[in-house]
């Protein structure tokens, strides 16, 4: 069973449907007990970083995410769920994140249009079971204005070019997260979700 964490940040229906499509059993929940019982955790979300942390705290989800991840449960962050893994963000004022990975979240340092909306390629920087079957240079669907800046180079899984090079995926042990939306990235996106589910 995969728990998709519902904390009032955007529509979770597409993530749920995509995981079901690849054969996973899912529960969409805001209940910390469901997160504890699940074998795997997905943290999706779109919206503002500060609101997201406030909602996670209000629902008692910060502690359970930290403890389950520390216990080794596979964790997948998507978009805002990637950003929240880091220590802090300067999106509309300074906000503390979950701090599961060292680094910060910053506005994309690009001259191009913000938000970046559309399909862009990833350059794969290290081996990952999650990216099995994904050719280097594949395109995925992005919608974002901010990007993560990990302090440890070894956490970087993918880089993407948008008038600047930014980190489009990270992985460390049981923690993985993507800036793009696998649930909206057609068959290659579903491939990543299948790799995560099995």
């Amino acid at each position: 069973m995969i728990a998709i964490i519902d904390y009032g940040m955007g529509n979770l229906r597409s993530v749920e449907k995509a995981l079901q499509k690849v054969g996973a059993e899912v529960v969409v929940s805001r209940d910390p007990d469901d997160v504890r019982r699940a074998d795997r955790i997905v943290l999706p979300g779109v919206g503002a970083f500060g609101d997201a942390m406030a909602n996670l705290e209000k629902r008692g989800l910060v502690e359970v995410i930290k403890s389950e991840v520390a216990a080794g449960k596979p964790f997948l962050g998507i978009c805002l769920g990637l950003d929240l893994l880091f220590e802090e963000s300067d999106e509309h004022g300074l906000h503390k994140g979950l701090g599961l990975l060292p680094g910060r979240v910053e506005l994309l340092p690009t001259e191009l249009k913000i938000p970046q909306i559309g399909w862009n390629q990833v350059s794969i920087r290290k081996e990952s079971a999650l990216l099995e079957g994904i050719p280097d240079g594949s395109s995925f669907y992005f919608v974002h204005s901010y990007a993560v800046v990990p302090r440890e180079e070894s956490d970087i899984l993918c880089l993407t070019d948008y008038g600047c090079s930014f980190v489009s995926a990270v992985e460390r042990g049981n923690i993985a997260a993507f800036q793009f939306h696998p649930e909206k990235s057609s068959s290659l996106g579903l491939n990543i979700l299948r790799n995560f589910s099995s």
């Binding site: 597409s14 449907k17 990235s185």
Partner: peptide
Amino acid sequence: CAEELFIP
């Protein structure tokens, strides 16, 4: 559409 479409 949301049930079966995995592109935006």
